[in-house]
């Protein structure tokens, strides 16, 4: 019963529920909001929304008021005999339709104007990232090379350009806090620009149904000041650290023998697989499994040995490893920072 009461309280609190981040959780897990005005594009779209919302509310109120008056005012039944369409209420018709046309035309014109301003950023983006949609993760590329997966950093306060591709099915790249979405379509390259006004961590997801794990295809974008971003980019483009500890060296050998390298690449090593996400700086990332679980040893271990329970149907087979080998492998992967 207490549970039920708790839920009731929770539900009753929804009106006040602003979706603030749970302080204990990493911010990649925090709520997003289309209306949050955290990015230039999202900000303008949010203005469009408030225009649409106020217009629609007005229309709604007018129509419902008219309807209520019509329903509860005293009317009369048509007398027997030839039925004449009554012209005395025609003004409602003319007025209503006229207003509809005016409101809709204003909306249309407003749409043109807003599309024009959103077409391109005022300042040409200095940076282009290439995003390739995979089943069911995101390959992040820079100048033709995969530098990360499911996570990327961008400089805040300036527009960034994305070129969007897919070599499999259709996906859609959506960062609600920052901009509208754009599809990744095989054979139809697309592009998108956005700008994060403030540094922060932003959650995004795939918005086009792309198969069994469409539901768990998220990503994280971290906006940070230009200097920090450049450090990140340089690091991301660098080759992997050599394994330091004894355990890690054994782990690396297991990585190469176990077949991991068949799908994953680690730049600077023999691992050059192109099927799964690249892992060069794996342990510097916030999340695993396309921004679905935090990147901690426990999650990583579980993901390696039983990825199919965490994300049923995903392309990574659950690995058969001895407990010991698993520890070595973990040591290696945790050193890839």
């Amino acid at each position: 019963m207490a549970t039920i009461m708790m839920r009731v309280r929770q539900i009753a609190g929804i009106a006040l529920y602003l979706g603030l981040a749970n302080a204990q959780e990493a911010s990649w897990r925090s709520p997003v909001n289309v209306l949050s005005r955290k990015g230039l594009v999202a900000d303008q779209i949010s203005t469009i929304w408030w225009f649409l919302f106020s217009t629609a509310s007005l229309v709604f109120l007018v129509v419902i008021t008219l309807l209520l008056i019509a329903l509860f005012k005293k009317g009369q039944a048509v007398p027997k005999g030839p039925v004449q369409e009554n012209s005395s209420v025609r003004p409602i018709l003319y007025l209503g339709t006229g207003l509809t046309i005016i409101v809709l035309l204003i909306t249309a014109v407003y749409t043109f104007i807003s599309m024009r301003t959103l077409a391109a950023p005022s300042q040409k983006p200095a940076l282009t990232f290439e995003i390739v949609g995979k089943q069911w993760w995101w390959d992040v590329r820079y100048e033709g090379e995969s530098i990360s997966a499911n996570e990327l950093h961008i400089p805040s306060g300036e527009p960034v350009h994305f070129s969007l591709h897919s070599d499999n099915v259709i996906h859609s790249f959506w960062l609600p806090d920052l901009a509208g979405k754009r599809d990744l379509i095989p054979g139809h390259p697309n592009s998108l620009w956005l700008q994060a006004d403030e540094p922060g961590t932003y959650r995004g997801s795939c918005a086009e149904f792309c198969g069994v794990q469409h539901g768990k295809m998220n990503f994280t974008v971290i906006a940070e000041p230009r200097a920090a971003f450049e450090t990140w980019l340089e690091h991301a483009r660098a080759e992997a650290n050599a394994a330091v500890s004894e355990e890690a060296r054994v782990g690396q050998a297991i990585f190469m023998q176990q077949g991991c390298a068949g799908c994953h690449s680690i730049r600077g090593t023999a691992a050059q697989g192109e099927i799964g996400p690249e892992l060069t700086h794996l342990s510097s990332r916030l999340t695993l499994a396309a921004a679905n679980i935090p990147n901690t040893t426990g999650h990583l271990a579980a993901w390696i040995v039983d990825s199919q329970s965490i994300k049923p149907g995903n392309r990574m087979p659950s690995q058969k490893l001895s407990g010991e080998d698993l520890q070595f492998l973990l040591s290696y992967l945790m050193e890839l920072n």
Binding site: L67, A70, K73, Q76, V78, V89, R90, L93
Partner: peptide, 18 residues
């Protein structure tokens, strides 16, 4: 627009009637 028109036809009809 045409849907709006129908809406107002319905409202006007109700307005007249009982």
């Amino acid at each position: 627009i045409p849907t709006g028109l129908q809406f107002f036809v319905w409202i006007a009809t109700i307005w007249r009637g009982k």
